[in-house]
Amino acid sequence: MIEPHPSPIVRLVCRVAARVIQVFALYVIFHGHYSPGGGFQGGALLASSIFLLRWGEGAPHKIWDLPQRVSFAVGAIGTLIFTVTGVFGLFSADNFLNYSALPLPGMSDAMRHYWGILIIEIGVALAVMAILVAIFDQLMNLQADD
């Protein structure tokens, strides 16, 4: 794995900047209904913040920094969120991925679509982030093996 950077200043800046990037990524994901943004862009931003942590801090210890054994599972969870949201439509004899069938009480169809889009965007963001981190980790690992 990657070693921590020797300079404490670089480590501190990586840590602080990564958290700022993560907050901005959450904003991009959840504000994607009203401004340019969405799951793909937010997922890429989250992945980039984790790359920054990797460069600065070296191998991850906490589960929030997506160590290697977790990242692929998180990608699977993201894909699963998307698929399960789609299958809800099938259960009520409707089309696949029709969000009108989501079991959200007291809402009009349009608001159900609104929340359905939000849920699948979170799934997409998780999947994109985890898979980018997994690919990055694999490439880095092999370099360190030699």
């Binding site: 209904h33 009203y34 340019p36 998307f82």
Partner: peptide, 25 residues
């Protein structure tokens, strides 16, 4: 009217063409 979402790209991506996005994921 269909999804109460102002960003048209998000609506196309997540709603009208959700199957496309699922395949992409």
């Amino acid at each position: 009217e269909d999804a109460h979402t102002l960003n048209a790209v998000t609506v196309v991506l997540g709603d009208y063409r959700g199957f496309d996005t699922l395949g992409e994921t």
